[in-house]
Computed example of a mutant assay.
Amino acid sequence: MATPPPHRFAPLRLSAPIALVLTALTLSGCADSDSSESAGDPIAIGEISKITSAEQLSFPLDAYELTPAQSRQLELAQDQLVVKCMTAQGFQWAAPERPPVTEANRHGRRYGILDEAEARQTGYHGAPQTDRGAKGREEGQDSSETAQKAAGECVLKARAQLNGKKSMDKADTTSDTYVEQLIVQDAERAEQDPQVRKAFAKWSDCMSKAGHDYDDPWASNNDPEWGKSETATDSERRVAAADAACKISTNLAGVWLAVETAYQERTLETNAEALAQAKKDNEDRIRRAAAVLGKN
């Protein structure tokens, strides 16, 4: 089966749909945060920086979101708790192998591809993934139906322990989910802001001059044609390179960042109390994870 190219919001590591209602935190602030502006009005923005690399991207809500390293720490702690839970029941169970984590790619292709050299090499597909993930049945794990059911129960127990709760079920969400919901919400608002739409139009004109007809960066990024091949074709690499070059020449990412930053700053003001609680909850989870890992 062909591997499709990355899609929008993939770098955010979303763990739950935006429609989920959180039990521990209120989302009332989210619903009201647009009340002062009518639909279609541009938000007031600050200085527009020249953005030529994803490494330059940073956002106000970053401080409230788990870093990739922290997320991995929680995963490793959960893995160890599950192994302990399963072996106590007599099942053969080993922790899954997880790919390495680097902070440099935190925002990766948040605004699509920005590196023309990378685009010419890998197109929209990105570098081949050779590391095994954590999903599916791993080596050293009992694949019987009984074991898999027990593993699901052990996962919920581990999640509850790391979240400081007596129990959790599959529908329960966590504080990082709340922050991710706000991030996605503001990303969607930013994309619809007239200032970003105007920047999209400039990018589209640039692409047209290069011989490529796309209305916005996601149209080229998610072109169904790219999903027909396991790796990037010459055509895909040409389009991706033009995409990156046009983003730089029009400073699309700079405008986009300024607008999304403004929406996030407003969200911070509207949801200050809930975000402070989310940050504390995440800190507590990391502390519990460190305690689990420190005992092993």
Rank of each mutant, 00 (worst) to 15 (best):
P4D: 13
H7W: 04
A10C: 04
A10G: 03
P11E: 09
S15W: 04
A16I: 06
A24H: 05
T26R: 01
S28H: 08
C30K: 00
C30W: 09
D32H: 09
S33G: 03
D34K: 13
E37R: 15
S38V: 15
A39H: 09
D41G: 06
D41M: 14
G46E: 04
A54R: 10
E55R: 12
E55T: 09
E55V: 08
P60S: 06
L61W: 03
D62R: 08
A63D: 12
A63S: 07
A63T: 10
L66I: 01
Q70K: 05
Q73C: 10
Q78C: 07
Q80K: 08
L81F: 07
V82K: 03
C85W: 06
M86S: 04
T87W: 01
T87D: 00
A88N: 05
A88G: 00
G90V: 02
G90C: 00
Q92K: 10
W93Q: 05
W93F: 15
A95I: 02
E97D: 11
R98H: 12
P99V: 14
P99E: 15
E103G: 04
A104Y: 10
H107G: 09
H107T: 10
R109S: 15
Y111T: 11
L114Q: 14
L114E: 14
Q121A: 14
Q121N: 13
T122N: 13
G126P: 07
G126I: 07
P128C: 15
Q129G: 13
Q129M: 14
R132W: 09
G133M: 12
A134Y: 03
K135F: 15
R137V: 15
E138S: 13
E139N: 12
Q141A: 07
D142F: 12
G152H: 06
C154L: 06
V155F: 10
L156W: 04
A158E: 03
R159W: 11
A160H: 13
Q161C: 00
Q161D: 02
N163D: 13
G164W: 03
D172Q: 11
D172E: 12
D172N: 10
T174P: 01
S175L: 01
D176R: 01
D176M: 00
I183F: 00
E188S: 09
E188M: 12
R189C: 04
R189Q: 09
V196N: 06
A199P: 08
S204A: 15
C206K: 11
M207V: 10
S208E: 15
S208I: 04
K209V: 02
K209M: 05
S220L: 03
D223A: 10
K228M: 03
S229G: 01
S229K: 10
T231N: 09
T233E: 03
T233P: 05
S235Y: 08
E236R: 12
E236N: 05
A241Y: 03
A245C: 01
I248C: 01
S249N: 07
T250R: 07
N251V: 11
L257K: 14
A258C: 05
A258R: 05
E265R: 10
E265D: 13
E265T: 14
T267N: 07
E269T: 12
N271G: 01
A272F: 03
A272C: 04
A272N: 08
A272W: 00
Q277I: 00
Q277E: 07
K279M: 01
D281L: 08
N282G: 06
D284L: 08
A290D: 08
G294N: 04
N296M: 00
